[in-house]
């Protein structure tokens, strides 16, 4: 009887472990997918890879902390329950971050059109340094809580247990992915696809390429801010937005490369693959020989292996090279 119980318990804990690895991986993957989606939209429209994404995400999360907890700005005007006020303030902060994205595009990226890709990538690295220091100075030395309504509450059903914020992250990601898919069917979305295909031909058809660039950066920055929020909530960060938030985003790079730099579905798939890989590595690769922080580099290892097999990622368009 007792060995059976032990076996039962072992099986239970094995199932628990598997389920928690999956749920954790999915919610982590949702954040990566959001970040990767922002990257890919910016890359597709403007051929720029934005290293400033981390700083933008941290700035967005800080703006949420500021608008939702310090001044409670638009939420205050609306009234109603606390969670509604917080959501309204958070959405307003995300919009503000999108405006920051617009400003960055206009001041730093637009003058660089036609320069080599790597130069533009370096511009975004420079922006990343400047923005990150400024947002860190706003955040100050201690982490700032976002004042979110999710708290540390957990939803449990059988072996499944997920934090409310994790469920929210997955839900919001699904909503945003659907919204982006829908967006690409609207007039502006089609214009963006045309721009991605051929900028000059798009201009010849009367599309304002500059405006498309601006919209892409606004969307990218907004998505980064949303990801920044979920990256600084309970299961990911215990205290709120801190100077670590910006570095979290660097782990989303493998996701975009894995999916292919210019593929929107690839970004989502890559995000979830990387999230699950990291989560499974954290749960199962616990051999002490791996040392500290092995799960943190699993995304990069997965990325390298995939790139050696498929140099343009899983869904990326192969670059045709001519002499």
């Amino acid at each position: 009887m007792i060995p059976v119980l032990i076996a039962q318990a072992a099986a239970d804990s094995a199932v628990d472990k598997l389920v928690s690895a999956i749920t954790n991986g999915l919610s982590l993957g949702a954040i990566y997918a959001l970040l990767a989606l922002g990257f890919v939209i910016i890359f597709k429209a403007t051929q720029v890879i934005s290293f400033a994404h981390g700083a933008i995400a941290a700035l967005g999360a800080y703006l949420v902390a500021y608008f939702a907890t310090v001044i409670n700005f638009p939420g205050d005007l609306i009234g109603g329950p606390t969670w509604l006020q917080w959501t309204v303030s958070a959405i307003f902060a995300v919009l503000m971050t999108a405006v920051v994205g617009l400003v960055i595009e206009r001041l730093a990226i637009r003058p660089m059109i036609g320069e080599p890709m790597f130069s533009i990538a370096m511009v975004t690295i420079g922006l990343d340094i400047a923005l990150r220091i400024i947002s860190n100075d706003f955040i100050s030395t201690e982490a700032r809580p976002l004042g979110d309504p999710f708290g540390t509450s957990v939803w449990e059903a059988g072996p499944v247990s997920m934090a409310h914020s994790e469920i929210a992250a997955i839900t919001v990601t699904i909503i945003l992915v659907v919204a982006i898919a829908w967006f690409f069917r609207t007039r502006i979305g089609i214009a963006m696809r045309a721009t991605a295909f051929d900028q000059e031909a798009a201009m010849a058809q009367g599309i304002s390429v500059g405006r498309i660039f601006a919209i892409a950066w606004a969307i990218g920055a907004g998505l980064a801010a949303v990801a920044g929020i979920f990256a600084s909530l309970f299961p990911r960060a215990s205290q709120g937005v801190s100077s670590e938030t910006a570095f979290f985003v660097f782990r989303a790079f493998p996701a975009i490369i894995l999916g292919g730099l210019d593929s929107v579905p690839g970004a989502v798939v890559g995000g979830f693959i990387i999230g699950l890989a990291e989560s499974f590595a954290g749960k199962y690769l616990t051999w002490s020989g791996f040392g500290v922080g092995f799960s943190g580099i699993v995304p990069y290892l997965v990325m390298m292996v995939v790139l050696l097999v498929r140099p343009y990622g899983l869904f990326g368009t192969e670059e045709i090279r001519r002499v």
């Binding site: 890879i49 790597f118 990538a121 790079f253 493998p254 490369i257 730099l261 990325m303 140099p311």
Partner: peptide, 11 residues
Amino acid sequence: RGLYLAIVTLG
């Protein structure tokens, strides 16, 4: 190549 290489070396 190109930016893909940049991110591999970043890794």
